[in-house]
Write a protein that binds this DNA or RNA. Structure first.
Lengths: 115, 115
DNA sequence: GAGATACGCAACCTTAAAGTTGCATATTAT
DNA sequence: ATAATATGCAACTTTAAGGTTGCGTATCTC
């Protein structure tokens, strides 16, 4: 079989559950929000704004990293995190798919009732 | 202050984390997918397609119900579940917001580099 | 080189998620 | 009325999430 597919197709092929799970935590959403300005931040910087310990923040960043939502680059003694938006496309593609199926169902139902 | 707001504004006002958390499980995503054809199903029906016990499915349905993703109506001795797409809009609005912020950041960065 | 800074790793605690089993109760069908 | 069906409730187990603390190591700064 061919392995060629568009990014949209690729997005649909990836299991979205782990991505949603990573997004399903307030602390992690907050970290993402702060990183979504495109700037890069160290763990200590990110932990400074929260009431959590650095280790807790590190764990959350690890969860985000495992699904590709952030990326880290070592820079001297600090590791700098950046937002990676690709998994968001996977999540959006999934939601769009469910919503589309839902809308189709409503249309068919309406057509059925009116015929 | 006014409490008037559009559905889009309302969507942004709701904490999306619990919705994402509810979506962050394969079994629940599968339940949602099967319900997103708009048809109504009993717990036993939904549990029949899985390798889980009825009770496990009941718990998952409860999680989905708690964030408004499904709705149940008692009908005789069975309770029938229906998909409710509104929370999906909340999730989509949130993802769109983050993605937009991200795109803005890239634009500003580009402008900064080129100036 | 010495001290401060930034991090990684590992152990540990607490709580909740996911799932099971057993039993009670309400409905439907015969 | 009885038997079968569909569900609800509660107790219990297992495992993982979220968080902390302590300590070791690499890296800047002076």
């Amino acid at each position: 079989m061919s392995t060629l597919m568009s990014t949209a197709e690729a997005a649909r092929a990836i299991d979205p559950a782990p991505i949603f799970a990573a997004l399903g935590d307030r602390t992690r959403l907050s970290l993402l929000m702060r990183l979504s300005d495109g700037r890069t931040r160290s763990i200590t910087m990110l932990a400074g704004d929260t009431d959590l310990t650095r280790q807790a923040v590190t764990k959350h960043l690890r969860v985000l990293q495992d699904v590709g939502l952030v990326e880290s680059v070592r820079h001297g003694r600090e590791s700098r995190f950046t937002c990676r938006p690709e998994p968001l496309d996977v999540a959006r593609a999934y939601l769009d798919g469910v919503a589309a199926q839902w809308d189709d169902a409503l249309l068919r139902l309406k057509a059925f009732v009116e015929e």
